[in-house]
C-alpha cells in the first residue's frame, strides 16, 4: 500500500505557489518523488532530540566581519544590469501587468 504523505490537492497548490506549471507526466513523476522524499524525511520525527538542542543557522557559526561602514561605492555599470533584461523601455524593465490589478 502506498502511503501518500501529501495529497494531490496540496501538491497542486504547491505548484501554484511555486509559480510553476507541470505537464501531466512531470506532475506524476514529481508527485511520486516528493512522497518518496518525505518518507525519508520522516526519519527526522524518530530522532530523540534532547530538550536543550538549539536549531543551528549554520553548522559552523561563521565569524565574519562586523557590519560594513556606511560608505557609498557605486557600481560602475548599472546599465549592464538592465541590459540583461529580456525587455526594456527607457531604462526600465518591462513586464506584463497583473490581471485583475487596479
Amino acid at each position: 500500500m502506498t502511503t501518500k504523505r501529501i495529497s494531490p490537492e496540496l501538491f497542486e497548490k504547491l505548484v501554484g505557489l511555486a509559480a510553476l506549471e507541470l505537464t501531466a507526466e512531470e506532475s506524476t513523476y514529481l508527485f511520486e518523488e516528493m512522497n518518496h522524499q518525505l518518507a525519508s524525511v520522516e526519519a527526522l520525527s524518530q530522532i530523540p532530540l534532547p530538550e536543550d538542542v538549539e536549531p543551528s543557522l549554520h553548522g559552523l557559526e561563521p565569524k565574519g566581519l562586523p557590519p560594513r561602514p556606511d560608505e557609498w561605492k557605486p557600481f560602475a555599470h548599472p546599465e549592464a544590469i538592465i541590459a540583461l533584461a529580456p525587455e526594456t523601455e527607457d531604462g526600465m524593465i518591462v513586464v506584463p501587468d497583473v490581471k485583475g490589478a487596479k
Binding site: 513523476y29 516528493m34 524525511v41 490581471k99
Partner: peptide, 30 residues
C-alpha cells in the same frame, strides 16, 4: 502571456528542469 503571473509560471516551467522543480516543491512544502 495573459499577465505577469502567467509569465512567471511559463518561464519557470519551461526554464527549469525536473530536479529544480522537485527541489522547489519540496522546499515550499517543508
Amino acid at each position: 502571456v495573459e499577465d505577469l503571473n502567467e509569465l512567471y509560471r511559463r518561464s519557470r516551467a519551461e526554464g527549469f528542469g525536473l530536479e529544480p522543480k522537485l527541489r522547489i516543491l519540496m522546499g515550499m512544502y517543508v
